[in-house]
Nucleic acid binder design. Structure first.
Lengths: 182, 182
DNA sequence: GATTATATATATCATGATGATATATATACT
DNA sequence: AGTATATATATCATCATGATATATATAATC
C-alpha cells in the first residue's frame, strides 16, 4: 500500500497531526505496519499541495505549531480508488504473506550458539512482552486522546480479536515447549 | 541482527551459494526475515575479503560460476560473538516485538471502503495461503536440495511447531468471525 | 534545588536496503 | 515456435529509515 493511501486512510478516521499519525504507528498499529517521521511529514505536505488534505495550524506558545490535517472530499475519492487498486493487486500478486523482520526468531534459530541463561532471558522477556500486548488488545475501556476512533470500527474489533487469539496461542506454546530448546 | 551475522549463521548450517541463501529467505525463512540479492552478494564478498568465509568456484558450462561459500573458524568466532551481542541488545532494548508490514491487515483495517466481494476474495485467498503454509510447516518428510539442514535443528522444530499453532489459530478465527466484518 | 529524562512537535538528511535491471542459458509449458 | 520459469551473479537508482536538529514543558530522580 502506498504511503499516501495509508495516511489518507488514517485521516479518514478523524483529523490528526503528523505527530499523532506517528503515535498510531507506535501504538495500536505497531503490530501491523509502521512509517517513520521522514516519510509521514513529506507525504502530508505532498497531499496538502494536491488538495487531498486540508491543514489548520494551531499556534502553541514556544512549541512548533500543531498542524492538524483533515481529509478532503477529493482525498476520500483518491483513498477509495487506491484501496480498491491495492486489494486487486494483492489478489493478483499471489503473494498473501506479510513482510516480517523478527530479531526474536533469528535468535531462536541460532539459539544453540547462545548461553542457556541468555536464551532463557530472551524467552522470558518475549513472553512478558506478549502478555502485555494481550492485555492491551483485550482491554475494552476508553483510551486517551485521539486513539479511540479506530477502536469502535468493526474491522478493528475483528483485528483485535484475531491478534488476541494469536498472542494467546503463542504464549501458551512457548510456555509448554520451551524446555525442548535446551 | 546485522546482515553479516545472519549470513554467517546460515552458512554455519552448511556451505551455500548466494543464490541458495536467497532461496532460504524466500522459502522456509520468509515468515521470519528476508534479505535481497543486493544485500546478500556484497555481504558475502565482504565476508570473503575478511576471511570469515572461504569460496569454492564451481564452473558451469555457460551459466555463471556457482560460488559456494563455507564459513571459516574465524567466521564461526565472529558469528558467536555477534550473536551474543545481538541477544544482549535485544534484552536491553526493551523492544521485544517484530517489525511487520502487513498489506493484509491494512486492507482489513480499511475494509469498509471495499466492495464486499473484494473483501471476500481477499479473505479467501489469505485463508487458502495460510492453509498451504500450515501444511508446509507440519510436513515432516524430506525436502529437496540444501534446505534439509535446518529442518533437523532443535530450534527449527520448536519454531515450526510455534508457526503451525499460530497459523492454525489464525485460520480458525477467520473462518469463525469473518461474518462480523460485513 | 539541580539535573536528567521524557513528551510534544516539525523538519531534514546521510545511509543503506530494496526492487529492478542486465546478462546468459536450459528446461518446461502452451 | 514462443513464452515463462529456473539457475546464477552483479549492479544501481530510488526511497524509507533512523538519526539529528531545534525548542520547550513537565515529570522524575538525586
Amino acid at each position: 500500500m502506498q504511503k499516501e493511501t495509508l495516511c489518507l486512510g488514517l485521516l479518514s478516521l478523524g483529523p490528526r497531526s503528523g505527530y499523532e499519525i506517528k503515535q498510531m504507528f507506535e501504538g495500536p498499529l505497531s503490530d501491523f505496519y509502521s512509517l517513520s517521521f521522514g516519510t509521514i511529514y513529506p507525504t502530508l505536505n505532498k497531499l496538502q499541495s494536491a488538495k487531498f488534505v486540508s491543514c489548520k495550524q494551531h499556534a502553541q506558545s514556544k512549541k512548533p505549531d500543531k498542524k492538524v490535517y483533515t481529509i478532503t472530499k477529493k482525498g476520500m475519492g483518491l483513498m477509495k480508488d487506491n484501496l480498491l487498486g491495492d486489494a486487486s493487486s494483492y489478489i493478483r500478486s499471489g503473494n498473501f504473506g506479510d513482510q516480517i523482520k523478527s530479531e526474536f526468531f533469528l535468535l531462536l534459530l541460532f539459539s544453540k550458539y547462545l548461553p542457556s541463561e541468555t536464551l532463557d532471558t530472551v524467552l522470558n522477556e518475549r513472553v512478558l512482552y506478549l502478555r502485555q500486548k494481550l492485555e492491551q488488545f483485550k482491554y475494552d475501556g476508553p483510551v486517551p486522546g485521539n486513539l479511540d476512533a479506530i477502536r469502535n470500527e468493526k474491522s478493528v474489533k475483528f483485528i483485535r480479536g484475531l491478534a488476541s487469539a494469536l498472542i494467546d496461542t503463542g504464549v501458551k506454546y512457548m510456555e509448554k515447549n520451551r524446555g525442548k530448546l535446551s
